[in-house]
Amino acid sequence: MNVVVKRLVFLSALLSASFIIIVVVFVILSGIKPFISDNEGLGPVSFIGFITRTIWLDGPTFVSNMYGAGYLIANTLYIAFLTLLVSLPLGVLTALFIAKIAGKRTGALLRSIVELLAAIPSIVYGLVGAGLFLPVIYNTALSFGIQTNGGNSTLAAVIVLTFMSIPTLTTISEVAIRNVDLSLEEASLALGTSKTQTHFNVVLPAAKSGIFSAAILAIGRALGEATAISLVAGNALSGPTFSLFNRTATLTTAMLQGMKETTGLDYDIRFSLGIVLIIVILITNFALNMLKKRVGKMHAQ
């Protein structure tokens, strides 16, 4: 009996571990088809073309194999980094406030607020983005003479993603800030510097690596977010879009569009997008981790 149970739990663990392989294998299996098969007479999609072209589909559906995700890759990275640019200062400063400036009660309150923000599902953020921010962007842009597609824009996507990134950034940065040795703060204060100077010249730099980790995590999530952005991005069919006020599209929003068919090139190509997305996330993670190591050199013993 015991042997049975032990075997059962072991198999459970094995099964759990195998899912990652299943995910990767099957996504690759379906996603690679457009590049190597004949696609019912349309001919294979060129991989290089796929990752460099700037139009989603050059030609009518079912007749053309000129799919392009190049502009989607550019947009996805652009939006993710813009989001980080806005949300990182917000998150880190909020964390600094909670950890060092706020009183016990205010700090606890703010922490609860951040936890709640973290628990809100992404679709709700998409809803608020579409229902609240789209009209605001549309009207504001109009008053400056800028035309927008009903407000659907890069700006809207960045705003929605910022809302979603702040909880992660704040929580992890707060831990990093708290972990900074108090004696470093004492040393700074004993030299006749003010608390604020100490925070910005000693505490935050000392928390750099933790903050970096927070940023890496946040970017990973931003790269993978689908439903929230697709409600505000506008589904651009070509690009890339660098202007804040134009429609845009990302790898994930393209995956969600027009799932009418269940077979055929138009369907399989979504899996190809999946492969590209995974690769983009892996490369970004790798690059940022390398950067993090270099930044952390001053902390090395």
């Binding site: 040795d181 730099p205 000392a206």
Partner: peptide
């Protein structure tokens, strides 16, 4: 201080 506490800087 009792325990040396240099900043993680140069």
């Amino acid at each position: 201080f009792q325990k040396p506490n240099p900043f993680p800087m140069s």
